[in-house]
Simulated scan of single mutants.
Amino acid sequence: MLMRHDVDVIGREIHIPHNDRAVAKNVSVDTVKLTFDTEWAECTSKVAIFKNGSVEFRAAVDGDTVQIPWEALDKPGDLYLSIVGYVGEEKRIVTEKMARPYRVRENGALAGEKPSDPTPDAVQVLLSQAGTATDAANSAAARAEAAQEAAVAGESA
């Protein structure tokens, strides 16, 4: 049911080996499978930016895939993709503008025009992941401290 778009990121360029089109009004079914060259191996996080006309949307790259936000497919037009890779807070890698964008084609008849809930922005996703990691680290530290206190109390008894 998912439409997978294969993309190669080589030499900071985005290459679309096959399917270069999408259809407007699809929601949560178009994904991009990314294959990166070795330059991207040290990136600690990656963000995909989708731009169709005036609509620009960031989405977190999960491993080597990213879902195309429905907001970028809402209207027909040229859909550009760029990838930004981060190595901590010190380095950033950015792809150049696509030479050949995806073509978002007009959709067929559609009963009802209500889109789904807004897609979470990449920054929201990354902050949520960081918060979850911080919570887990704090919980582990508290458990370790409690275990150490119990061990000390057991030795003194």
Rank of each mutant, 00 (worst) to 15 (best):
G85H: 02
A153V: 13
D117Y: 12
T35G: 03
L81C: 02
F50S: 00
I14H: 01
V87E: 04
N138E: 10
D62Y: 09
D135C: 13
G53W: 05
P120Y: 06
V23S: 04
A146M: 05
R100T: 06
L79S: 01
V84R: 03
K51R: 12
I93M: 09
G63A: 07
T31A: 05
Q129K: 12
A99W: 01
T31V: 14
A147C: 04
S156L: 15
G63N: 03
I68Y: 06
G154L: 14
F36M: 15
D74A: 13
A147F: 00
W40F: 11
E56M: 13
P120E: 01
A72F: 04
V84C: 05
N107C: 10
L81S: 01
F36T: 14
A60N: 07
P115H: 07
A146E: 06
S139R: 08
A111P: 02
I10H: 13
K91H: 11
P120I: 03
A41P: 00
V9Y: 00
A157Q: 11
G11H: 03
V23L: 13
I83Q: 02
T134P: 06
E42F: 06
V66A: 05
G112T: 07
L127Y: 10
A122S: 10
E90L: 14
V125S: 01
A133N: 13
P120L: 05
A153Q: 07
M98L: 05
S54W: 12
A153R: 14
V29G: 02
N52S: 03
